[in-house]
């Protein structure tokens, strides 16, 4: 009974399993299933970007072409939304994009763990982005960075109201950035799992229900294609919003 319950429990896939216990200075640094997939994602991205480009061919191999495409895609996004000056953040945006993209894609493979379905992971990414925005914005622009909250051309009467809205908007950025990715991954995987559970339950029930079991199976096929789109799209959204926020750090005056 427990095994069957586990098989159709849509939340089970998000559980963190501690595979090895570590405690470093009072901090729980246990090696978990999430750690495994973080390492796998890092290894896959590194494989693409390092092994793929090791030949340095003038005429690229397939893998080198893929690595170059990833490079030029992210570089184009950064240049397009921040400008040439934004290329200093290119490694950060690229690493974020590739890590999120590979996490999302890898998570679609059955029996894998989706690193980005954990709010703490997506929030950590958002914190890195917003932290970079604040630190770089203040270092570069000093007090002028506060112009981010004071748009020009606003009537004095409305100014306090607008400033309040801008501040709330700025504070909500890391929240929206992290929750968007987390919720998309979570919801997609729960939906897939629920439909998968339907198939198992209907087949188990037998009779007419078992006859209808291929229907949720077909839905899973369609949803998997849709989740593939969401996986890529959310990685792109994360990268482009990172660029938009970093743009504020460089050009705070709107």
């Amino acid at each position: 009974m427990a095994a069957q319950e586990q098989a159709i429990d849509p939340i089970h896939q998000f559980n963190i399993e501690r595979l090895a216990h570590f405690n470093v200075g009072g901090v729980d640094a246990s090696f978990t299933n999430a750690s495994v997939f973080m390492i796998v994602v890092t290894a896959l991205v590194s494989l693409l970007m390092l092994a793929g480009t090791s030949q340095r061919s003038l005429v690229p191999s397939r893998m080198q072409a893929a690595a170059e495409m990833a490079y030029e895609f992210v570089a184009g996004t950064v240049r397009g939304s921040i400008g040439h000056e934004g290329m200093r953040f290119f490694p950060l945006v690229f690493s974020l994009f590739m890590f999120v993209l590979f996490s999302n894609m890898l998570g679609l493979v059955p029996y894998t763990f989706t690193v980005t379905s954990q709010i703490i992971v997506t929030f950590a990414f958002a914190a890195i982005v917003i932290g970079t925005v604040i630190v770089y914005g203040v270092v570069r622009n000093g007090a002028h960075f506060l112009h981010l909250f004071v748009p020009s051309g606003v009537p004095a009467l409305l100014m306090p109201f607008i400033v309040l809205i801008e501040i709330i908007s700025f504070i909500s950025r890391p929240v929206s950035l992290s929750v968007r990715l987390f919720a998309n991954m979570l919801a997609g995987h729960i939906t897939l799992k629920v439909f998968g559970g339907f198939v198992a339950l209907m087949l188990g029930a037998g009779g007419f229900a078992a006859f209808l079991a291929p229907l949720p199976m077909a839905a899973i096929v369609l949803l998997t294609a849709f989740e593939l789109l969401v996986a890529v799209l959310q990685a792109y959204v994360f990268a482009i919003l990172t660029c938009v926020y970093l743009n504020d750090a460089i050009h705070p005056g709107h």
């Binding site: 963190i16 729980d28 640094a29 246990s30 978990t32 999430a34 750690s35 973080m38 994602v41 690493s95």
Partner: peptide, 15 residues
């Protein structure tokens, strides 16, 4: 905590 630790390690390495 374990996720943050391992994310810092892996993402740091990737970066």
């Amino acid at each position: 905590a374990p996720q943050l630790v391992w994310l810092a390690l892996t993402f740091g390495a990737l970066y």
